[in-house]
């Protein structure tokens, strides 16, 4: 793969579709396919998966021909930090309570930005967590302990 293929938009787009389509067909192999009269649970997904592979092949070929590049940056930091902050929220809200989960989520998300300011984000996290606790837990009555065990 040379450099121009590495950032070729439609080559990657085509590969993406082919992978999803192949996975869809692969996992659907265990679902009864049925007949056209009595379509089994495997019929629709298999057809869709196959369609995606076809679309993918077309897009791939298109990319090889046109060579259009991917536009925009790949913000690696945001791509890793933001989902991670959400996952931590999911873990913490079940084990540690609403307040720690929110503090970690807000502050953690802030880290994903390119203009991160430590003090500002610390204050903002505390204020927003307090606001959310008041609005969602106290006023709207969502049943989450503010801090687990209390």
């Amino acid at each position: 793969m040379n450099r121009s293929t590495l950032d070729n938009k439609d080559v990657w787009a085509g590969l993406f579709l082919i992978v999803v389509g192949v996975l869809a067909v692969f996992f659907a192999r265990n679902y009864p396919f049925g007949t056209a009269l009595r379509m089994g649970p495997g019929y629709f997904p298999t057809v869709l998966g196959a369609l995606m592979v076809l679309f993918g092949l077309y897009t791939l070929a298109n990319g090889l021909r046109s060579g259009e590049k991917i536009e925009g940056n790949w913000p690696l930091r945001a791509l890793i930090v933001l989902p991670l902050a959400l996952v931590l929220f999911g873990v913490l809200i079940e084990r540690a309570g609403f307040v720690p989960a929110m503090l970690v989520l807000i502050f953690g998300s802030g880290l994903a930005g390119t203009e991160f300011r430590l003090i500002e984000m610390l204050i903002f996290s505390v204020l927003l967590t307090a606001l959310c606790a008041i609005v969602f837990v106290w006023a709207l009555g969502l049943p989450y302990p503010l801090i687990a065990g209390f």
């Binding site: 989960a101 502050f107 998300s109």
Partner: peptide, 30 residues
């Protein structure tokens, strides 16, 4: 925006979690 997007993240997470109280749905959202 550096303050706006963490706030959006917070509201998103609360919104999704409040539907089924399911952490799995938070992971799926990510």
């Amino acid at each position: 925006y550096r303050l706006l997007f963490p706030a959006i993240m917070a509201f998103s997470a609360i919104g999704i979690y409040s539907v089924n109280n399911s952490s799995m749905e938070i992971y799926l959202t990510a």
